[in-house]
């Protein structure tokens, strides 16, 4: 009788621990999902800004056809692969980031353009969108790190193994603002 109680008690305790660990994993996985959705929102915003930007700068930058075309091309490519996996996307988006960075650097030598109110407003939006992309990537990667750690440490690794929680990929992308800055590294 007593043994039955003890075994029953242990089973209940184990179940409680299992549920707690499972819930913690679910919470972390949701956070990763939300963080990914945030990156998505910001990348879409970046794509939406580009036609406007092109419209504004093309009158001023007649001699920079190549630079402009590179941006448009990179943007179209990035839009095409928008539903692909993280690896393909981050390559396309990095390309776009580099092209945008070049465009903005070139724009610096057009004083008329820089006095244009519309361009100034767009530049603020673009700067901020690039920042938001890198902050959402930062938060996403931090979330992934935390989630992956949780799937690997004992005892929640057991729960992760049983319930099928798999480690996620990090997302690397270059944005226009950080061409020459060191990559964020997680060690």
């Amino acid at each position: 009788m007593l043994a039955a109680y003890i075994i029953g008690g242990i089973v209940v305790i184990l179940a409680v621990i299992f549920v707690a660990l499972y819930n913690a994993l679910v919470k972390l996985r949701n956070q990763v999902k939300n963080a990914w959705a945030q990156i998505d929102v910001q990348l879409k915003r970046r794509h939406d800004l580009i036609p406007n930007l092109m419209e504004t700068v093309k009158g001023y930058m007649k001699h920079e056809r190549e630079t402009l075309e590179a941006v448009t091309k990179a943007r179209n490519l990035a839009q095409q692969v928008a539903s692909s996996g993280a690896g393909v996307r981050s390559r396309a988006e990095s390309e776009l980031g580099a092209a945008l960075g070049k465009l903005i650097a070139v724009a610096e030598s057009y004083p008329d353009l820089k006095a244009n109110q519309n361009f100034l407003a767009l530049q603020e939006e673009l700067t901020s969108t690039e920042n938001k992309i890198s902050f959402s990537r930062q938060y996403y990667n931090d979330s992934v790190l935390r989630y992956n750690n949780q799937t690997m440490v004992f005892p929640s690794s057991l729960v992760a193994g049983m319930a099928g929680f798999k480690a996620d990929d990090f997302f690397e992308i270059t944005v226009a603002a950080e061409k020459e800055t060191p990559k964020v590294s997680f060690t």
């Binding site: 610096e108 700067t127 603002a177 060690t187």
Partner: peptide, 16 residues
Amino acid sequence: AAGAISLRAASPAAGK
């Protein structure tokens, strides 16, 4: 909980 995290450079990039 946090590993080493490196800094970013000042923005906007030099020259702007």
